[in-house]
Nucleic acid binder design. Structure first.
Length: 821
RNA sequence: GCCGAAGUGGCGGAACUGGCAGACGCGUGCGACUCAAACUCGCAAGCCCGUAAGGGUGUGAGGGUUCGAUUCCCUCCUUCGGCACCA
């Protein structure tokens, strides 16, 4: 009797049953260890993409594995539903962002259900839902009340295409382009809301206790960019202080001029009348440049003398003050001491404008003259021309690890000329967005009282639905006739709402907490759920978020901890990144290239189990790679073979031999062992490979008459359980077929029989001078002496020996004998 | 320029802690089944020489350590990712 494998029938059947039975509901159970498995929530762009499947199905398989290992697993799913594409669709197709977004969510949820993942849909959270963003707004207020949110007027990054400001993290690359649309950003002077991420800079570069990929930690550390050094206060001739930050206080005696950023507030004070016109002209030019022009590294340095002088505090020397666009207002204090002998940039500048170059660090055995040297010397040496510090060695270490730096800092502090200091590349997080489809910032601007938070009982501040978009791109919230007009909660006078919305990264910074209790209305989450489920045990997602979401989410957790809302140092204990699925042409999939692979079509053709299996098999998960539509046939063949081996009877097989059963059982437990290890280490491609290998063995055993034996039954039972996380539907069907009780997904992960794993006979490799010459079958437990003797006996080896006596014989237990002549 | 990751058959990739390189799969070739094709099944295969037995060679390149290196060390090349006048 032949029963065909019909994924199109069994998959919907089991999905329906699982849903009816609430098989994947995650409930608090104090008697079982919990496991919070999380994968990054998608943006509801319209259709499920093969990339979503690649991210989600291995994560699902791992969550299922953890469940079989005895953990009470929660694996929730939701939607990061605010954001620009909805608004762009609104403008283009005249459809409201809310309607567009929710239609997409419905569609994607349906598509996702065909995946057969163990998502607990009762915990679904949608960030654009007022019952969700009420708490996003509540968090904003909390940060404001705790002095972690502030409003500042400054030059910010503006995307002219998206018509909104961006956070520093959302401006990418050398060309300074918008992360979303690739348009070069421009600078705009605006008053905007910021979160004080820089307060946590030091904590954010500490990854103690969390198992995150080195790659992500490096990216974050570089992004945060901590530099150790000193701040030193110079004075103008008139006595006004100019603070500078330097990583090389040991070169203070070599400072021959100062440079201020063109927009430095002190410039106006120090220019002499004689230079005023020129300086102002220069300032004006620098201002007119885009960030890209000004930031170009290979650009020739330009600057202009202000006419003013500063006094170097270490030696009371009078040095000229210049302004130059190579000094940036946004880093440090916007002013530097220039040490041309030991800094490349200062050197280039000094040579161009004929300024003094004075050597203060002399490398060993090299004569160096400031007037003639051809390049700056940033390396190690001994301090010279530096008064009492002459002779102090300076090495290549940073900060206090450099004895010269350390000694000078101590002295500066003693003399109150400066202090040890640290600077970061990280900027505070700009969260205001001049867009409609986001969570409104819950603040009111009152002419009398200033900025006033919206009282809690008035949250959420809902988005008005009757809005219109103008071609100017201005936010509909600003243009709405009544929405922004309110009474001040403080004085009841006329006031206006903040018409900006929050960066959607704000919504996704706390979403794991909303899954705990998506309908809870007494707070962002139910404390009882929090205490049981948090922290997140495994988080998976793409590496592209290393410097955005993954920094924000850690900042958010640490700030929330300090505000008494959450506990513990980190929100996510383990992080793993998947790679990207590329098109068959090895290019990034995109509609315009026409290389997009649609999961729906694959599911129709092969069924979800095969698609899942192939996604786990076709590439290393953490690397991804180009799609190969031929390759899926191999996985399809494997799954159908599994089906056939278990459901089909094989008439007329010989009587089975003991060795067949024994080696079947050995292979079974060896496979179980390696599959278990690979689930632990996220090596999904080798899980499938070793399961294929075992199936090949099982086929042979089947033909050798193994079916019906106890060993065969054990193999089938364990096999079904091993594929359950990868192929949840076929495994459920086969589990039922062999007469076991529903559900395979309630079964415990099988135990490895270590005895069965051991090989009885091993292949001894015999080498002569490190080259493979022979292989001998020997019983396991062979002693080294016996192995050596046996190897020497071999005819092949005797030929190679040619009567000579070996110099040395190396025996590696149970593996090889190497005869050295 | 700085920081990081990676280079293994025609392709995706495997190889535990220094011990049989190329598991598993795709593709390819040959064969079985079939009137035929598809499906399915079996066999072969890194490259070079050889009808074969066999030999040589081989994990980006060069060198080193070692009885033995894809694995450890040094130098270099290539590709990808991040940062970039960061003081």
């Amino acid at each position: 009797m032949k029963k065909e494998y019909k994924p199109g029938e069994i998959e919907p059947k089991w999905q329906k049953k699982w849903e009816e039975d609430g098989l994947y509901h995650a409930e608090i159970d104090p008697d079982r260890p919990k496991f919070y498995a999380l994968t990054m929530l998608p943006y509801p762009s319209g259709d499920m993409h093969i990339g979503h499947w690649f991210a989600m199905t291995p994560s699902d398989a791992r969550a299922r594995y953890m469940r079989m290992k005895g953990y009470n697993v929660m694996f929730p799913m939701g939607f990061d539903a605010f954001g620009l594409p909805a608004e762009n669709a609104a403008i283009k197709n005249n459809i409201h962002p809310k309607i567009w977004t929710y239609a997409n969510i419905d569609r994607m949820r349906t598509q996702m259900k065909t995946m057969g993942a163990m998502f607990d849909w009762r915990r679904e959270a949608i960030s654009a839902d007022p019952k969700y963003y009420k708490w996003t707004q509540w968090y904003f207020k909390k940060l404001f009340e705790n002095d972690l949110a502030y409003r500042k007027y400054s030059a910010v990054d503006w995307c002219p295409h998206c018509n909104t400001t961006l956070a520093r993290e959302q401006v990418w690359g050398e060309d300074k382009v918008c992360e979303r649309c690739g348009t070069p950003v421009i600078k705009k002077e605006l008053e905007q809301w910021f979160f004080k991420t820089t307060n946590y800079a030091d904590e954010l570069i500490n990854y103690e206790g969390i198992d995150w990929p080195e790659r992500v930690k490096t990216l974050q550390t570089n992004w945060i960019g901590r530099s150790e050094g000193a701040s030193v206060v110079f004075k103008t001739e008139q006595g006004a202080p100019i603070e500078v930050f330097t990583t090389r206080p040991d070169t203070l005696w070599g400072a021959t001029f100062m440079v201020l950023a063109p927009e430095h507030p002190l410039v106006d004070e120090i220019i002499t009348d004689e230079h005023r016109a020129d300086v102002e002209h220069y300032q004006h030019e620098a201002e007119g440049q885009t960030e890209i022009e000004r930031g170009a590294v290979d650009k020739e340095k330009t600057g202009i003398f202000t006419g003013g002088y500063a006094i170097n505090p270490v030696n009371e020397e009078k040095i000229p003050i210049w302004i130059a666009d190579y000094v940036m207002m946004r880093y440090g204090t916007g002013a530097i001491m220039a040490v041309p002998a030991h800094d490349e940039r200062d050197f280039a500048f000094a040579r161009k404008y004929d300024l003094e170059v004075r050597v203060v660090i002399k490398p060993e055995g090299v004569e160096m003259d400031g007037a003639t040297m051809e390049a700056a010397w940033p390396g190690e040496g001994v301090m010279v021309n530096s008064a009492q510090f002459d002779g102090t060695p300076a090495n290549n270490e940073k900060g206090r690890k450099n004895p010269a730096v350390s000694k000078v800092i101590d002295w500066l502090e003693e003399k109150s000329l400066g202090k040890e200091d640290v600077n970061y590349r990280l900027r505070d997080w700009l969260i205001s967005r001049q867009r409609y489809w986001g969570a409104p910032i819950p603040m009111i601007h009152c002419t009398e009282c200033g900025v006033v938070p919206v009282p809690d009982d008035q949250l959420p501040i809902e988005l008005p639905e009757d809005v219109e978009w103008l071609p100017t791109g201005e936010s509909p919230l600003k243009l709405h006739p009544t929405w922004k007009t309110v009474a001040c909660p403080n004085c009841d006078g006329p006031a206006e709402r903040d018409t900006d919305t929050m960066d959607t990264f704000m919504c996704s910074s706390w979403y794991p907490l909303r899954y705990l209790s998506p309908d809870y209305d007494q707070g962002p989450f139910d404390q009882e759920e929090y205490d049981y489920w948090m922290p997140i045990d495994t988080y998976t997602g793409g590496i592209e978020h290393a410097n955005m979401h993954l920094i924000y989410v850690r900042f958010f957790h640490k700030a929330s901890r300090d505000m008494g809302i959450v506990k513990g140092p980190e929100p996510m204990m383990q992080l793993r990144n998947q790679g990207m699925v590329l098109g068959e042409d090895s290019e990034k999939m995109s509609k315009s290239r026409g290389n997009v692979i649609a999961p729906d079509i694959l599911v129709d053709k092969y069924g979800a189990d095969i698609v899942r299996g192939y996604l786990m098999f076709f590439a290393r998960w953490n690397q991804g790679g180009p799609w190969d539509s031929q390759g899926i046939g191999g996985v399809a063949r494997w799954i159908r073979r599994v089906w056939t081996a278990i459901t089909e009877e094989l008439p007329g097989t010989p009587e089975v031999k003991d060795e067949v059963l024994k080696s079947l059982r050995r292979k079974l437990h060896q496979t179980l062992k390696s599959v278990t290890e690979d689930y632990e280490s996220f090596e999904f491609n080798t899980i499938v490979a070793s399961l294929m290998e075992l199936m090949n063995e099982m086929y042979k055993a089947r033909e050798a008459g193994a079916v019906g034996t106890q060993d065969w039954k054990e193999a089938v039972s364990i096999y079904i359980r091993m594929i359950a996380p990868i192929a949840p539907h076929i495994s459920e069907e086969l589990w039922e077929h062999i007469g076991e009780r529903y559900s395979v997904h309630h079964q415990a992960w099988p135990e490895v029989d270590e005895e069965a794993v051991i090989e009885e006979e091993i292949t001894l490799v015999v080498q002569v001078n490190g080259k493979l010459r022979d292989r001998i079958q020997v019983p396991a437990g062979f002693t080294d002496e016996e192995a050596k003797a046996k190897a020497m006996e071999s005819e092949v080896i005797q030929n190679f020996l040619d009567g000579k006596e070996p110099k040395k014989v190396i025996v590696v237990k149970g593996r090889l004998v190497n005869i050295v002549l």
